[in-house]
Every structure is written in C-alpha cells, then in structure tokens.
C-alpha cells in the first residue's frame, strides 16, 4: 500500500470550514422568545410530530385561533430554512421538520372552519416516461415547508395532464424534473402547449440529465440546479413578479 500524507494532495474543505456552532445552539438563537410560538417552533425544528400536536392542542385550549397557529409553525420552519441555507443542518433535518409541520398544518385546519391562505400555488410533476421522483419529492416538501400550496401530479405525468392542471390551478410556478435525456423533451412540449394557450407561467426544470442550455431553449423554462432553488424562485416570483428573463438572470449560474 502506498501512503501519502493526505494534506499534500487534497483538502477536506468541509472539515476545515465546518461551523463552530452546533445546530441546536444555532437554533436556540433564532427561536421566537414568546410562548406558545417558541415551543411550537422548537418542536418543528426537532421534527417531533407528537410534540408539535401537543403544543398546538395546548395553545388552542388556551384560546388561540387554530389558523393563526400556522404562522407559529412557519416560524419554526423559518429557523430550519435559515440553518439549512447557512449550512448548519442537512436535508434530512429539513424533511423531518417538514413532515412535522405538515402534520401541524393539517391539525390546525381540522380545528377551524375558516380557510387558510397559502403563499401561492405550485404545480409539481415528473416528466412523462420518467418514474424517478425522489428529486420531485424533495422539491415538493421544501415548497410546502416554505408555505406554498403544492399540487403534486406525481411521476410519469402526460404532457396534456400537466397543461390541464396549470389551466385549472393557475399556479404561480410549475416545476418539472427528469432523469433521462429523452423524457426531458416533454418539458419543451409542455412549454409549447402552455404558450399556445397564452399562459406565461415560469416553468422551473431540473434533474439528472437536465441542463441550463436545454431549459433555455423554450420560452418559459428556468433552470433549477438544486432542489432548494424552487423555494427561492417562488419567493422571487412573489416579490418581483414572474418575468422569465429576470428569473434567468438570477438563477442561471452557467
């Protein structure tokens, strides 16, 4: 066996740059100070579904409006999103928090007769002919965790079904993921059908074989390199509008 001193030939940048603060310590600094939002936010961060429900029950019992508590759940998810963006926590933590938050939202909705307004509706799908959906599932979970109402069409979704869903749901954004080169051609067909129908909704595309050059070939396409870009793009649409050129300026990195 040949042994070379590792530092002579490579750099473990992740070890060198790891944040000093533990995730729990970092989260403590971000939790709201008042109750019950603090306890709710903390249990969201910890991904403890039972604790979330328990704190919500208590708050409702104390007279809180169930739909107002969704804002408290979002406060927990804001902590999670911030620490994920800062590289303090990893994706599984986000997924477990998202699971807990969705359970909390369902619980709050079940305790109210009023309707909850989301930040906006987003249609997600995996391209026709493609059954690889873990990327889409991550995108959908992150969007839901970000406060968006996700219409998840699933995988292997025919072009026509996506177009019909967009017409019916009127989303602020559509996402498409694909692993293979031939299946991603469906994105262009969806784009053409939407444009023909006069619909100008940003169509965020990403996944294994998908690249920026391909996505730029059709009018509504905006390339999403990472799953987390979906939330950032939706937030940008809410703040700055849905102009494709503006989104490309911000999100096309290559």
């Amino acid at each position: 066996m040949i042994e070379v001193k590792p530092s002579d030939i490579l750099v473990r940048y992740n070890v060198k740059l790891e944040k000093e603060m533990a995730p729990e310590e970092a989260a403590e600094e971000l939790y709201p100070t008042e109750e019950p939002v603090r306890s709710i936010a903390k249990s969201i961060f910890e991904g403890e579904e039972d604790d979330v429900i328990e704190h919500l029950e208590k708050a409702i019992g104390a007279g809180k409006d169930p739909l107002d508590l969704i804002t408290d759940l979002m406060a927990g998810m804001d902590v999670v999103s911030k620490l994920y963006d800062d590289g303090v926590i990893f994706l599984p933590n986000v997924m477990m928090s998202a699971d807990a938050m969705l359970e909390g939202i369902d619980y709050c909705k079940s305790k109210s007769t009023k309707t909850h307004e989301s930040k906006g509706k987003i249609v997600c799908h995996v391209a026709e002919g493609d059954v690889h959906d873990i990327g889409k599932n991550i995108v959908a979970a992150l969007l839901r965790a970000g406060g968006y109402d996700v219409v998840d069409l699933g995988r292997d979704v025919p072009v026509e079904e996506v177009v019909e869903a967009v017409k019916k749901e009127k989303p602020i954004m559509v996402t498409g993921t694909a692993l293979m080169t031939t299946t991603m051609f469906a994105f262009k067909q969806i784009n053409d059908r939407l444009v023909e129908s006069g619909i100008k909704v940003p169509f965020q595309c990403g996944g294994g074989a998908v690249n920026q050059d391909f996505v730029e070939q059709y009018e509504l396409g905006v390339y999403g390199e990472e799953a987390g870009d979906a939330v950032k793009m939706a937030d940008t649409i809410r703040k700055k509008g849905s102009k494709i050129d503006g989104l490309r300026d911000q999100f096309h990195q290559h």
Partner: peptide, 15 residues
Amino acid sequence: TAMFIAGGLLDKNLA
C-alpha cells in the same frame, strides 16, 4: 441516490 444526494464536500444534503 444516497451518494449523489450527499454530493461534494461542501454540500449539505446528507452525511
């Protein structure tokens, strides 16, 4: 899938 989610040294998706 696990290896690609884990990604490069600086990615923060999976240990």
